[in-house]
């Protein structure tokens, strides 16, 4: 007797689903072939999920940089240390806010659209049609979107950080009149390339993998109905945001 979904153990079901997702990841990675087709479709997905998220990432980055430096200057002025603002902004950005905020924005902007797109392909039997043509949909549909996410998120994070630094420059130098020399030299002497900067880059690679795996997985196993697609989209945002924050803590404690 195959078990009914609703009758499954409430504690074991999430574990089973994690395993299912892991098998899906392995199957997806196992289908990597170094060929032109994969390169082209990955590039196309980088355009769709990476390049199209760029504007929102830049705007958010800029304002996060401004507000960070506003808060930092406010707090540091109490100790007469407002010239340390760039150090504070840089450390929080590179280590935490850049990777995490970009991943959350990415989950909302790109993760949902990937989940909905694949779910809709499933609902209109395009996935089934592919399988029947002896084309592996995991390789052709899921893999390029996953790879594009892993490549795009670190680059989007770099973009976010760059615009946040520009935002901080505009606010602290342009508005508050701090000395640009002190601003840059504090950044250059205080922010460690290997720990602060590369740590953030590694985080964003992992986050890119998490968000796009979840989006692709939920889309691929969505119920082939309108409601199923909606559920897949919602679950993608919720679960990938939660996992990003959990993995942020895990990676931070490992990297420090």
């Amino acid at each position: 007797m195959p078990k009914d979904r609703s009758k499954r153990n409430a504690f074991l079901a999430p574990i089973a689903e994690t395993g299912h997702c892991g098998v899906f990841l392995i199957r997806m990675l196992g289908s990597i072939r170094l060929e032109r087709e994969l390169l082209i479709s990955t590039l196309q997905q980088i355009y769709l999920i990476g390049a199209r998220s760029l504007v929102i990432i830049m705007i958010c980055g800029f304002f996060v940089g401004m507000v960070l430096s506003l808060q930092a200057i406010n707090a540091l002025q109490l100790f007469g240390a407002s010239d340390q603002v760039s150090l504070l902004v840089g450390k929080t950005l590179f280590r935490e806010l850049g990777p995490v905020l970009t991943a959350l924005l990415f989950a909302g902007r790109a993760g949902t659209s990937v989940a909905a797109e694949i779910g809709l392909m499933k609902a209109t039997s395009q996935i089934e049609a592919m399988e029947l043509m002896a084309i592996d949909p995991v390789q052709r549909i899921a893999l390029p979107r996953f790879l594009a996410g892993v490549v795009s998120l670190p680059l989007l994070t770099a973009m976010f950080n760059a615009f946040a630094v520009i935002g901080a420059v505009v606010f602290s130098i342009g508005v508050m009149g701090l000395d640009p020399g002190i601003f840059w030299s504090k950044l250059q002497s205080g922010i460690l390339f290997s720990k602060d900067f590369m740590g953030g880059v590694w985080k964003s690679v992992v986050f890119g993998g998490i968000v796009s795996l979840i989006a692709v997985y939920f889309g691929y196993y969505a119920k082939p109905t309108g409601e199923g697609v909606g559920t897949a989209t919602t679950r993608t945002v919720v679960l990938s945001s939660v996992l990003v924050l959990i993995f942020d803590f895990i990676m931070t404690s490992l990297l420090i």
Partner: peptide, 9 residues
């Protein structure tokens, strides 16, 4: 195979 609604990409 020709599926019910054609299932064109």
């Amino acid at each position: 195979v020709l599926l019910q609604d054609g299932a064109l990409f």
